[in-house]
């Protein structure tokens, strides 16, 4: 087996609000290999969203460290935020621009990408996610699923090395889910993008992942390859895909 290098390393991350309460995240350690596809799952309120927000430097850990390419993410937070793209769980809170086009271009604008280049990239991502027809709409005219796609586009367009998605399939229909999956796999394959994705629906993605992390009550309960840990996930409130009828490779909405 070849040894790939980790791109993100999380070490003993703990996050606590106030001094008396028990920590919301407790001693979290894991690593993401370059160009890997990792799925994170866990019951509601176990701290998945909080953890993801640390990876992009939106929250500062109470203790513990996160390294990106071997360097603490807080050494150069500006660089971190360009390299780690985060799609929020609720797009309602993520959209900033007035129109869809403006919102998708927002990150690029902050990175100092020229207008022409921006428009080119916006058109491309809109085509890939099939939201061309939405580009000139106002953000508050969008449906829930459409908002979700726009939020995704706004992050994917920035071309981050690590893309972190918080329950991205939540509001997406079958078609949009397939589109998103295809796009993510393409990114992984062609640009060596590292993907970390939170979902409750293992059967949508499990075929594409080689690393599964299960959280419970602010801690990491299990991690490993799906084959190794799938038999144990049920005890943490996760629906186990019916494996006897299908093989692991079939567990995807792309098949």
């Amino acid at each position: 087996m070849f040894v790939s290098k980790p791109i993100v390393v999380v070490e003993q991350l703990t996050y606590q609000i106030g001094s008396h309460a028990s920590p919301l995240l407790d001693g979290i350690s894991f690593r993401l290999e370059e160009a890997s596809f990792t799925v994170l799952c866990g019951a509601n309120g176990c701290g998945k969203s909080l953890l993801l927000r640390h990876l992009n430097g939106l929250l500062r850990p109470t203790s513990g460290n996160i390294y990106l390419h071997g360097r603490n993410i807080w050494d150069d937070i500006w660089d971190t935020r360009q390299q780690v793209g985060l799609v929020f769980q609720d797009p309602e809170w993520q959209l900033i621009g007035e129109t869809v086009r403006e919102d998708i271009g927002f990150g690029l604008e902050n990175m100092g990408v020229s207008m022409d280049m921006r428009n080119e990239k916006i058109s491309l991502i809109a085509q890939q996610l099939q939201i061309m027809h939405l580009l000139d709409r106002y953000q508050y005219q969008l449906s829930g699923g459409e908002k979700h796609l726009v939020a995704l586009a706004g992050v994917l367009v920035m071309g981050a090395k690590v893309v972190v998605l918080d329950e991205p399939f939540n509001a997406l229909d079958f078609h949009a889910t397939q589109n998103l999956l295809l796009r993510l796999l393409e990114l992984q394959e062609q640009q060596q993008t590292t993907i970390l994705l939170v979902t409750h629906d293992l059967e949508k993605v499990l075929a594409h992942t080689n690393h599964l992390i299960v959280m419970s009550k602010g801690q990491i309960a299990l991690q490993g390859t799906p084959e190794q840990i799938l038999p144990q996930v049920a005890q943490f409130g996760i629906k186990v895909p019916t494996l006897n009828a299908r093989k692991m490779n079939d567990l995807s909405w792309l098949t």
């Binding site: 939106l58 500006w78 929020f88 993520q94 927002f106 990150g107 920035m158």
Partner: peptide, 20 residues
């Protein structure tokens, strides 16, 4: 909450609050 999240959202997409 909106105020809080809008700052988060802007930061997460590389906004540094400099005039452009």
């Amino acid at each position: 909450k909106k105020t809080y999240y809008i700052t988060l959202a802007m930061q997460s997409r590389s906004f540094i609050g400099k005039p452009q």
